[in-house]
Amino acid sequence: MATKDDNGTALVQREQKQEVKPPPMYQVLLLNDDYTPMEFVVAIIQEYFNKDRETATQIMLKVHRDGKGMCGIYPKDIACTKVELVLTHARKAGHPLQCVMEEA
């Protein structure tokens, strides 16, 4: 927006910059159950969260020991998609594996 001062000189006002906050991030968690095979959980982590076998095994063991384990942190849409993919795959394979997301 331009205005003129008393001498006719054009003055340009700077717009105040709005502070842009990054979008909230969500962690995707697998929850322990007594029925889903450990090997299936490792395969899910490798396939949907792009972890190597060793890392996937460590996450699976955390799920087994602590009741839940974090597979990754993502923007909301991606986290939601990953949860749905994992749940769909688990149900098709006949496993009750639970996958949830929480704001990080």
Rank of each mutant, 00 (worst) to 15 (best):
A2Y: 15
A2K: 14
T3I: 15
K4M: 12
G8H: 09
A10K: 14
A10N: 10
A10Y: 12
A10D: 12
V12E: 11
R14E: 14
R14V: 08
R14F: 08
E15W: 02
Q16E: 15
Q16A: 14
K17I: 12
E19L: 04
V20N: 14
V20P: 00
K21W: 01
P23N: 07
P23W: 00
M25P: 05
M25K: 15
Y26V: 06
L29M: 12
L31D: 00
L31E: 04
D33P: 11
D33Y: 12
D34P: 00
T36A: 01
P37I: 08
P37G: 02
F40P: 01
F40A: 08
V41W: 02
V42G: 08
A43T: 13
I44C: 06
I44E: 07
N50K: 14
D52K: 15
R53D: 09
A56M: 05
A56P: 13
T57Y: 13
I59L: 04
M60D: 04
M60H: 05
L61I: 10
L61V: 09
K62N: 14
K62R: 15
H64W: 13
H64V: 12
R65W: 09
D66V: 01
G67K: 02
G67R: 05
G67F: 11
K68R: 13
K68Q: 14
G69P: 04
M70K: 02
M70D: 00
M70R: 03
M70W: 00
G72M: 05
G72H: 03
I73W: 01
Y74N: 02
P75L: 01
K76I: 02
I78P: 07
I78F: 02
A79Y: 11
C80H: 11
T81M: 15
T81K: 13
K82I: 13
K82M: 14
V86M: 04
L87P: 04
L87T: 14
H89V: 11
H89A: 07
R91W: 04
K92C: 04
A93K: 12
G94V: 02
H95N: 04
P96W: 08
Q98L: 11
Q98N: 13
C99D: 05
V100R: 01
V100A: 05
V100G: 02
A104Q: 13
A104S: 07
